[in-house]
Computed example of a mutant assay.
Amino acid sequence: MRGSRRGPGARLMVLYGAIVLFLLALFGLAKPRGLLEETLRDLRHIFFFGFAALIILEMTALIGRRWIRKRSLYYAVAVLSVLALVFGYEIVTGTDPEFPVRGVYSFLGAFGFLALSAALDRGLKREHTWLRGWPRRSIGVLGALLVAGALNPLGPVLASYAGRAGAFPVVVDLASTWQEPFIEMHDAELFVGKGPDEWPRRAGRRVALLLPDGTPGSGVMVHEPFKDWSGFSVLVLNVYSTAAHPVRVNLRLEDSSRLLPPEERAEYLLRVTPGANDFYIPLDALLSVPSGREFRRDAVRRLGLFLAEPAPPFRLYVHRIRIAEE
C-alpha cells in the first residue's frame, strides 16, 4: 500500500542525507581550502556518529528482528550502541583540548538524527498509537533542535558567507562582522571606529582602523574575498593615513588555496600619502604576475595590505574595497 511505502522512504531520507554529509566530511575535506570546509572538518565527528547511529538502527531492524519484536527497541539499541562508540572513541583518542565537549556534541547530534528518523517512522507510529499528532511532531522538533545545536558552529560561518555575497561588489569590508572570520593579522592590530574629521568621505562614519607595527610585511590578509572578478576592470580603495610622510604599501592578491611564492602572486605598490588617498587601480595592471602566468580572475583567494618598508607607527583608516566597471 502507498502509506506503507512512504514511511520507510521518508525515514531513509534522513539516513541518505547523513551518508552524503559523512562522505563529504571524510573524503572531500581532508585538506580544507576555506573556512566552510574547515568548519565541516571540525564537525566531522558529529556526522560520523550520526551516520553510525542510523546504520546501527537499520542493521538492527534487518538482522535482529527475529529476536527483537518491538521496533522501539531498535532505537534503544542504536542509542546505547552509539553512546558506547562515542565513549570508546574519547577514551582511545583522548579529549581534544580545543573542543573538550566533542563527545557530548557527537552523542547529541547522533541522538538528534535518531529522533528525526523516529518522527518519520510510520512503523513506530503503528506500534505506539500515542506517537501520533503532536507527540510525533515534538520528537521531530527535538531532533531538529539537537542536530542544529550540535552543528551550531556552522551558523556564524554561513552568515559570514551570506554577508560576503550580499556586499558584492564590495570584496573586502574590514569594519563588518561578516568579514571577521576571514581576517588574518600579521604584526598589526585591527579595530573598528569612526573616520577622522579630516576625511570628508568617512568623517564620523564606521571604518576599519589598521595599526601596523612599522616593520616590513606587517599588515592584514583577508582570506576568501568574493572570488569571481570577471567582468570588472577596476579595484577601488579609499584609505586615510596619519603618517607624517608617504608610506609604501603592498596590495597583494593570490588565486590559489595554497601559499604562493612571490613570483606567483600579484603585488601592486601603493604610495600612501598623509591624509586621504583614493586609488582606482586597473585590474589589468593589478593582476600582473612576475612569472608571466595569467592570474585567474574568477578564483581570487586572498587579498592583503602590507607595509613594503619600515615606517614609524601610524594609523591607516580603510574603507570598503570594491571592484567596479570603468
Rank of each mutant, 00 (worst) to 15 (best):
S106G: 09
P156G: 05
A115E: 07
K194Y: 04
A159G: 08
L190H: 00
V171G: 12
L73R: 12
A78I: 04
A165H: 07
W67R: 01
R65P: 08
G88E: 03
A159D: 11
L73M: 10
W178L: 03
F87N: 14
R66S: 02
P181K: 00
L145M: 15
E198N: 07
L151P: 10
F113S: 15
A188S: 09
P97N: 08
M185P: 02
L114Q: 13
Q179C: 01
A84H: 05
T95L: 15
L62N: 11
S81E: 13
T129M: 09
G88V: 04
P135E: 10
E184P: 00
T129N: 10
S138E: 07
V192R: 00
L73C: 05
K70A: 12
P181I: 00
P181D: 00
G143P: 13
R137S: 11
F111W: 10
H128K: 13
T95Q: 15
Y75S: 04
P200Q: 04
G143W: 05
V157C: 01
R164Q: 06
H128S: 12
L85C: 14
L146Q: 08
E189Q: 14
G133E: 15
V79H: 04
F111S: 14
V104C: 08
L158V: 06
Y75K: 04
S117C: 08
Y89N: 13
V170Y: 05
G166K: 10
Q179L: 02
S138A: 15
V172C: 02
S81W: 08
P135K: 10
P135Q: 06
P135D: 03
T95F: 09
E198P: 07
P156N: 02
G88F: 03
L124D: 07
A188Q: 02
R132G: 09
W130P: 04
F182P: 00
S81Q: 12
W199K: 03
G112I: 11
W134T: 11
E127T: 08
K125Y: 08
D121P: 09
G195F: 00
P156E: 03
W178G: 07
P200T: 02
S160V: 02
L116D: 14
E198D: 12
